[in-house]
Simulated assay, not measured.
Amino acid sequence: MPPPSPPGRVPGHWALRLVHHPRVALAGKTALAALIAWLIARQVPDAAEYSFYAPFGAVATMHPAVSRSASESVRGLLAIVLGGALGLLGDDLLGPYGITLAILVGVGVLVGGLPWLGESRSYVPLAAVFVLLVGQGDEVSYAASYAGLFLLGGVVSIAVNAALPSLSLGPADDAVRALRTEVVAHLRFVAQHLDDDDCQASLAEHGPGRAGLRRRLSRAAAVVGEFDEAAAGNHRARRHPEVVARRSQEFRALERAVLLIDDLYGLSADRP
């Protein structure tokens, strides 16, 4: 007979948490989108040789939020078009030489600094190098295939993401819960010591630490922000709008409490 489970521990608890982790869902959707994009690309006439760019586009643009997948697809396509244009221009003016490669990489990095390219900025010099080196003899066709197949992967990524949207409540709940615990600890400390005449220094020097509270607030803000972003264009969120609203409201209330606590610490520093 197997020994009983320790109190408070549910058999398979960690396995269940792992299976329901948002990263697992993202990995599954990305793998599915990459496979579908590759299979479709292999059916495109004259593109089978470069069909691997389609799963590349699916992987590069997949994001937990449907709206983010769409925006990353647009940014990635623009970056590749810019890089492809640089590659064609460099090959036409200078030829496929080492100095051309160096110039294209430098100019591509500069162009990639355009703020609206976001995280896709690195695709500009990469696309320029690929067009120069890989597309030799057929640069225009190669550049068009590269951009078109990347776009195909992005479209598949958006479709898979829209069909199987993620709405992970766990990380948002954990972040809000941790912030609430931190806020309670600070409020209790302030309540106990705000009237303490023996405390010659400021509350901030004796308390749990303002830096820790700010870090906890920043962490919760990032997680809740990702949760709100994932809820946009998400049919699961539209069926339960109160779920999204409640978590956002809880975070906003705690955020205001953190600002008030910070004011109390500031006042105590001025008048210990």
Rank of each mutant, 00 (worst) to 15 (best):
V10W: 12
Q192P: 00
V244A: 02
V24R: 14
E255M: 01
L194G: 03
E250M: 11
S69M: 03
A144H: 03
A253I: 10
R239T: 05
P171F: 14
A221S: 15
A257G: 02
S69P: 02
P6Y: 13
L104Q: 07
V190N: 01
H63W: 02
H235C: 09
M62R: 03
G170N: 12
S71H: 09
S168W: 13
L133F: 09
W38R: 04
G148A: 12
V224W: 13
D262K: 01
G118E: 00
R42H: 04
I158M: 14
A47M: 02
N161Q: 09
L167C: 09
A175I: 05
G207W: 08
L213K: 11
L149N: 05
A144M: 10
L114C: 13
L77G: 07
V184R: 13
L167H: 11
A163E: 11
V190W: 00
T30C: 14
V59I: 06
K29H: 06
D174N: 15
G207T: 09
I99N: 03
G154H: 09
L149T: 04
V156D: 06
R121D: 00
L132C: 13
R215G: 12
V129E: 04
V59C: 02
E119S: 07
R210I: 14
A37I: 06
R215K: 15
G112C: 10
P7I: 07
S141Y: 09
G90E: 10
S71Y: 14
A144W: 11
I261M: 02
L88C: 09
D198N: 08
A85Q: 10
A163F: 07
R252Y: 11
G233T: 06
H13R: 13
R215S: 15
W38V: 00
V66K: 01
D262A: 05
V10A: 14
V134D: 05
N161L: 05
L126D: 00
A37S: 08
E182Y: 09
E119K: 12
A230S: 14
L126K: 00
P208Y: 10
L18W: 08
G83V: 00
G106H: 03
A144E: 13
A37M: 08
V156K: 04
A162S: 13
V74P: 03
D262V: 03
L18G: 05
L264R: 08
A211D: 15
S120N: 00
P45I: 00
Y123S: 00
G84Q: 06
A269I: 06
I103R: 08
G76C: 08
A31S: 05
L187D: 11
A231V: 09
L260E: 08
S122G: 04
G108W: 03
S157V: 10
G233C: 13
G76W: 10
G207R: 01
L164G: 05
